[in-house]
Design a protein around this nucleic acid. Sequence first.
DNA 1: GGTGGTTGTTCAGTGGATTGAACAAGCGTG
DNA 2: CACGCTTGTTCAATCCACTGAACAACCACC
Lengths: 265, 265
Amino acid sequence: MADSRTPRSAEGLGSSSPAPAVTRAAAVLDALAEAPSGRLTLSDLSRELGIPKSSTSNLLMALEEARLITREGAEFSLGRKLVELGAAYLSRLDEVQEFYKFCEQAPTLSGETVRIAMIDGDHIIYLARYEGHPAVRLTSNIGDKMPLSLSAVGKVLLAQLHDHDIEAMFPDDVELPVMTPKSLRSAVELKAQVAAIRKQGYALEDEESTLGVVCLAVPVPTHGAHGPSLGLSVTALKATFSEEQAALMVKELKELAHSLGNPMG
Amino acid sequence: MADSRTPRSAEGLGSSSPAPAVTRAAAVLDALAEAPSGRLTLSDLSRELGIPKSSTSNLLMALEEARLITREGAEFSLGRKLVELGAAYLSRLDEVQEFYKFCEQAPTLSGETVRIAMIDGDHIIYLARYEGHPAVRLTSNIGDKMPLSLSAVGKVLLAQLHDHDIEAMFPDDVELPVMTPKSLRSAVELKAQVAAIRKQGYALEDEESTLGVVCLAVPVPTHGAHGPSLGLSVTALKATFSEEQAALMVKELKELAHSLGNPMG
DNA sequence: GGTGGTTGTTCAGTGGATTGAACAAGCGTG
DNA sequence: CACGCTTGTTCAATCCACTGAACAACCACC
């Protein structure tokens, strides 16, 4: 997707980093993560990030020594250590452990596909997935990202933000990403939904990211001031989706959200 | 585990990194990943890594801007971007996708707990887990590490290495980590097992990491020269473990390994 | 409230990381 | 095979990131 003609400068001109080498190294990791093939050469990186070749070479050597990237011939790709670090992050979230336990025991949810997600910049990121439903395997994985406007969790998390933050992210004339004919197209429409979500306490996504698939989501009340807000969602096939079922799911999701929000034994 | 009295210098004295800031930043991430609570203050990090406070402050600011870490008051912890990056790494491994598909269809394995792992320095790291067996939920997670000598996959991957590499990692007088009374204690014993594993083509772990639990593992033939070698394992309760079952599992594991090793439609 | 030991931030000097040009090695192409 | 166009590595000069000490803010404990 990234236009290879447009080098995205690692440094935003005026904003000089307090540790440029680190900022640039992070840009290297990003570039590798976003590259379609996942593999780039020194020259590729140097060109795309606008970093001199010799400097890039130094960065890559340091990153390789830290196992954050791997060299394979002349091509570099992400390293295994990133899996460790990502896992270390997730293992610290007690919510994830409890999430699994709860899903297994919940009468309705235990048979569905449930996910827990978190807001991450202008996207959501999936942290864990419970699959009671081996028949419907989602293509999305832990760690995957999604635009806020295209998912139920995204909308529900958006609804948790202050209005001026929402306005900053979605001015009225902004272009929203579109994945299906039913995707929301205007920021005005999105903000109207946000208002509705705040009233009813849950969000619905009706084939807006994948045709034939609907999603329900609720927010997890953020306990105390610390930690970013989490959201929960159930995914179901539109064909087998009924009002009563939806009501049950929302009820159980809210129970789960409540128990995640109030840490107890 | 880390003796807080012993600052592990980020730089190995003589070996000066071509990009010290990056190496130090990586050390910061490691320290945060290993910290029991997952949260450290600027001073903690400065002390433990032997980096001046002012420099540490700069590193942390740059890391935070890259979302590789998060600040929470005065404490720093790993950032969400690491989950993304780890996921990006895993999503590139086609093996993982095929692994899931195969497990679901395999007659015996589909009811068991199967994992795929990779060698990572002197440990193994789990890349994916299939659970046909909701009754027995493992405590281990994707991204977790394990010493080579304590798991069936570890031993089977060790058996793939050249003898001189094994000798370098496990000289005869080395102290092996111990987790149960049945854990291997001497490197000599370990190397004898490696020889046996090479003959029979699979490895067995008999309550060496967890009492009551046994594991079988086979290697995935590394197709071509590139990519590190992978291993597959099934975990079962010792109580419900029979010879015939073991034979079936090894057979299916080998089939899976073969299909992973020979990429096809 | 004073006091000792923290904490994180500021700032000017300097030593080392960064750099660009010049190098060597690979690869299609005519 | 010689040619252009890549690629990655080398090296000395310069600039800027790192440093250490001095600072301010905080907490805990008499």
